[in-house]
Design a protein around this nucleic acid. Sequence first.
RNA 1: GCAGGAAUGGCGAAAACGGCAAACGCACUUGAUUUAGAAUCAAGAAAUUGGGAGUUCGAAUCUCUCUUCCUGUACCA
Length: 1026
Amino acid sequence: MKYNFNEIEAKWQKYWADNQTFKADNHSEKPKYYVLDMFPYPSGAGLHVGHPLGYIASDIYARYKRHKGFNVLHPQGYDSFGLPAEQYAIQTGQHPAITTEENIKTYRRQLDQIGFSFDWSREIRTSDPSYYKWTQWIFIQLFNSWYNYDSDKAENINTLISVFEKEGNANVNAACDDDVVDFTAVEWNNFSSEKQQEILLQYRLTYLAETEVNWCPALGTVLANDEIVNGVSERGGHPVVRKKMTQWSMRISAYAERLLQGLEAIDWTDSLKESQRNWIGKSVGASVTFNVLPNEKCHSEQSEESHKISVFTTRPDTIFGVSFMTLAPEHELVTQITTDEQKAEVEAYIEATAKRSERDRMADVKTISGVFTGAYAEHPFTKEPIPIWIGDYVLASYGTGAVMAVPCGDQRDYDFAKHFNIPIPNIFEGVDISEEAFADKENTKITNSDFLNGLNYKKATKRAIYELEQIGQGEGKTNYRLRDAVFSRQRYWGEPFPVYYVNGMPQMIDAKHLPITLPEVEKYLPTETGEPPLGNATTWAWDTKNNKVVSNEMLKQVQHDNKSSVSSSGVETSQHNGVYPLELNTMPGWAGSSQYFNRYMDPHNDTEIFSQEAVNYWQQVDLYIGGSEHATGHLLYARFWQKFMFDLGLVPVDEFAKKLINQGMILGTSAFVKRLTLMWSNTARNIEFEDYKISLSKNFPTIICSNEFYEKNSNYLLLVDLVEKFNLPKLKEFLNSIDEDKIKINDLAFGDDEIHADVSFVNSSDELDIKAFKNWRSEFKDAEFITEEDGAFKVKRDVEKMSKSKYNVVNPDSICEDYGADSLRLYEMFLGPLEQYKPWNTAGITGVHGFLKKLWKLYVDDNGIKVTNEEPSQDSLKTLHKTIKKVEEDIENFSFNTSVSTFMIAVNELTAQKCTSRDILEPLIVLISPYAPHIAEELWSQLGHGESISTVPFPKFEEKHLVESSKNYPISFNGKMRFTLELPLDMSKEDIEKIVLAHDKTQEQLQGRTPKKVIVVPGKIVNIVG
RNA sequence: GCAGGAAUGGCGAAAACGGCAAACGCACUUGAUUUAGAAUCAAGAAAUUGGGAGUUCGAAUCUCUCUUCCUGUACCA
């Protein structure tokens, strides 16, 4: 019987589906284990071999845990909202729901053929209304919440309202906007409803705010930072402008400290935690207020108070080293304090800065620029005047957009001071600052600083803050870089907000009317007036009387009747029939992915997001596998939502994933061919015939050159030589057509263009299938080829990211067809460590495929199963048990590549031992089954078992089979191994030394010398020195 | 710039604790089988762990230093 993998795999995939083998139950006596993959976006291109890497690893772990007696939850679904489907819809008019559905079908087929043990009964799709109903629901909860720093958690907005009603907002310690105004209880109670709503928006965990976006008028859309290259759009190269837009934001900054602290408790990779720490960007220091000295622009009489500049510093201990201040050019005070004399210069500088993109400003660290405003601030302690400058090294978006510059202690301040000849007072004892700033906190001793003299960094910081507080010009402060997250997208294919507007104020639709489903539109582009695509919808208004989405006609009717109008922002001024406009933005990609892991626990619940019973049983994800590119996006936002839901008492733990592993990327091995280009070896002589040269270049035939030949000969050969060596009629014709009066044929050389060839045309020896290449594209149809001496055509190979545009994509479908899913699974694991980046090379799969055939032959011969009830040999037992030990350790350490090697060794050994014993071969196939489940099921059933192998207990390791009585000692001389010697393990150190020294080979090595020292490590090694 | 990670044969890699470097596989060579190829079987060759120093009886592994590469990023006060 042959190993017919196609038949076997189809059979067992059907069996698993028919029997719902991997359906997880929410009730079980077994301990639970939750293994999750980051769910895929179903793209039109389908899966390539890089995609399933993490899924295979998690599947092995899930299957292993089932063998270990766990009730395993291993679900899968689709992050099915997203841009590519929308882009496709814009181009073709095809509804994104339709293309998404098609793509999901392809994904499902591809995933099924790899044999994953997913519980498909729990599948979720973020674009499914029954799912995004709950995304909308969470949004409403966020809207109805505020963050109380006193209790350090989110609370219902009603608790805030009752505080306002009783005592105003003076004592409220909340996460809120920077510009909240103080009010008393009386004032609050007298505010209009609109005013109250406006104030509450400043406290809610999701709120409307004016946000600057990159607006591309030509594309009619907002672009992400990385979609902009050199100030123009990546697609099409259209200009991009900064534009303010009212958008929903998430007050994630309220959770900054908890997100930071929470990292301590979770088992995620260090690099990932580090990224999140940097992203949160906590810095501890002080805020210091500087008073601006009056000048002709800002007289003290003009306003009661002089202008104040607030700065944040991590080094309040260096306050006596301040010799100037720098404001960001965008800082609001700049225009108010600049003197008339400096006005022109300052304005020119601001204008120049505005033209530079944030990217430009960041990339260009070398150039120092800035302008003096003419104004001075007063040092809080010395009362000395401090010049105020503006400079683009200060960013408006961080801290207060202003810094107190301490050139002796900060390199950027130092460079700035040097450049503009500003004094650099030294406040560090015994430190030379003539060359560079001194930023070392550890060895600081402050001097020239009044009350700080002689103190170290820690003490001086404390004292400085204390003194600042005494004079009311500062306090200790912690700053976070983490900014609130914009939650609106001007897109069609995303979750609609459950929001309508009354008099410009957002209102939540009652949760019982959810989901608010995405309306149909004619066109997926923004409207002509620049509104998001939902502005094209004709049925997109909320009827508050009937609680349903109704036609926009209902809005117009009222307008007409009441002669009211819709402002450009879609805000009604007057309503009588209770119909209001709905929000036109949709939610971003991370909305749906921030709660899906919990929804899997109870995916079909229609009355609540998940039952408490389900979430208390499954708790949290035990193992999460996915790409590291989500470090500061999905993985941070999801932690934020989890903490929020924890505050609401919805989930029992405030971190959603206990352990997280990043799988590395599988890279493609691209193939390149050289296309020859026409070149002149002697340009000077031909300069007058430039036009002729250009026309010649146009007629140059397509010639494709083999890589090795090119590398060896391109420096020596001329074009004419090629014609002599190879049969190249088109080139010959071309050379014959040249007017030798204008161009000397002997001046013609060749260069090259490297072009990608599709990897499917290339065999494992890097030889190109010329015929297939010619048929590939019309431009190569008549190409001529220069081969190696032996007639073969060799391509150049290079490792790059696997991508369609590089023609290096390998499809798992063909691999499964040619070698089977078990081979694919084993090979993906065999390539190398899970977290590492590694190139794919299909040729190597024959190794693991050969292993599976060998494994098969261990159980089956021409007459069927050949396993016997024979007593196993000691050797076979030893092989089995060392395999059990190693494989178990490997799986626990996620070292899947080494366990594949271990299986190979085991099968090689058992084959050599001619082992047919059931006592060996049954446990062996259980060991292999998480990796190669199809062949394992088949052999298991052929061994006579009626049930699936999937929950058969994992074999137990028994030490006794590995106990050895002797050890083959390596005998080394000065650390270099020279020979080995078999000695009993229980032999004493002294005896070993005696026997080794007496040995012939030892004497041979020593050649009469007496060893200085003999190191004997029992059970390990003998080392003779001398 | 900063942070995190990496560097071992022609290629992917292996080597908890410092103790036989290169297991396992690809590719390669030779032979057997075969009409040929594929497949299979048997045999075989190669390479000193990025460079330099140190600790040690002994270093891929620990320390210092330099180089190169990858990933992330924020001129973050």
